[in-house]
């Protein structure tokens, strides 16, 4: 599996972090003004803000590593789909509230254990960003876990919708926890996180939440992959069409 652009391993790694938070922040921001309850509209917007704020730190670092005259905006707005390094999970559509919650539950569970380890990175910038983000990520994980339990253990309908969302999205979990060459190289250099180390914690956490929520772990073990290497689903192109519209329509201007 190859992407048509390859970056230095550290840049690849930083872009994965930047794009996961950018794309999920974008998706969650689509809820703003349309949430099921006003309080939850505010909470979702909070999470989108946190994620985009985290993304900006990673984007700035990526811009610095890329050199030339790259900025957070050129990195966010002027790369095409194959140059994005987010996991497939975060680009999946919002669907109903159940899909949004389950997508966040899976991502937040990963993101929490990942960032907890990233704080120990030998790369000071990554360690600092992770340290700054962990409190927010802890809150996100609490929110998505509590809502998973509430909806899983709510009504028959909410339980059915949650189970459907889990069955639909579970296949995107594997990519988050399965190391590739970049992950291995970064881990060996003491920069990146050992995904094999955090995988059992993530799985354990998820099965605890699902069990409290009266939800079943999917039996099908097949996992989709490709996002973090730059091979995406059809959804990402539409996200970029919106995200990048202004910078593409009016190149090189100050806003």
């Amino acid at each position: 599996m190859r992407a048509y652009t390859s970056y230095e391993p550290l840049t690849e790694y930083v872009l994965r972090c930047a794009d996961n938070t950018l794309v999920l922040g974008h998706r969650i921001s689509e809820w703003c003004g349309h949430g099921p309850i006003l309080e939850q509209d505010i909470a979702l917007t909070n999470m989108a803000l946190d994620l985009l704020g985290q993304s900006r730190m990673y984007l700035k670092y990526a811009a610095e590593l890329l050199g030339h005259e790259e900025t957070e905006d050129s990195v966010a707005f002027l790369r095409d789909a194959m140059q994005f390094r987010n996991s497939l999970l975060v680009e999946q559509p919002n669907g109903d509230f159940a899909h949004t919650i389950v997508r966040s539950l899976i991502f937040d569970s990963f993101h929490y254990f990942f960032s907890e380890q990233l704080i120990r990175s030998k790369d000071q910038q990554l360690a600092d960003i992770a340290a700054k983000s962990l409190k927010e990520i802890t809150y996100h994980r609490k929110f998505s876990s509590e809502w998973s339990i509430r909806l899983g253990d709510g009504t028959e309908e909410s339980n059915r919708r949650m189970q459907t969302a889990i069955d639909d999205l579970w296949r995107y979990k594997g990519e988050l926890l399965t190391p590739d060459e970049i992950d291995n190289e970064m881990k060996e250099k003491g920069i990146g996180v050992d995904l094999n180390l955090i995988a059992p914690s993530v799985d354990n956490y998820l099965s605890q939440v699902l069990s409290r929520a009266n939800l079943q772990l999917p039996q099908d073990e097949f996992m989709q992959k490709g996002g973090k290497q730059g091979l995406h689903s059809e959804h990402l192109g539409y996200i970029l069409a919106e995200l990048q519209f202004m910078q593409r329509a009016y190149p090189g201007l100050n806003w």
């Binding site: 921001s29 703003c32 003004g33 009016y250 806003w255």
Partner: peptide, 27 residues
């Protein structure tokens, strides 16, 4: 909110999102 996903820079996007969230809080 119609412009959140299309804001022209990261700085503007975050500011707009925060603004719309303020309106929700006012409500």
């Amino acid at each position: 909110a119609n412009w959140i996903t299309r804001a022209p820079s990261m700085r503007r996007k975050v500011a707009l999102l925060a603004k719309v969230q303020d309106e929700a809080g006012h409500g």
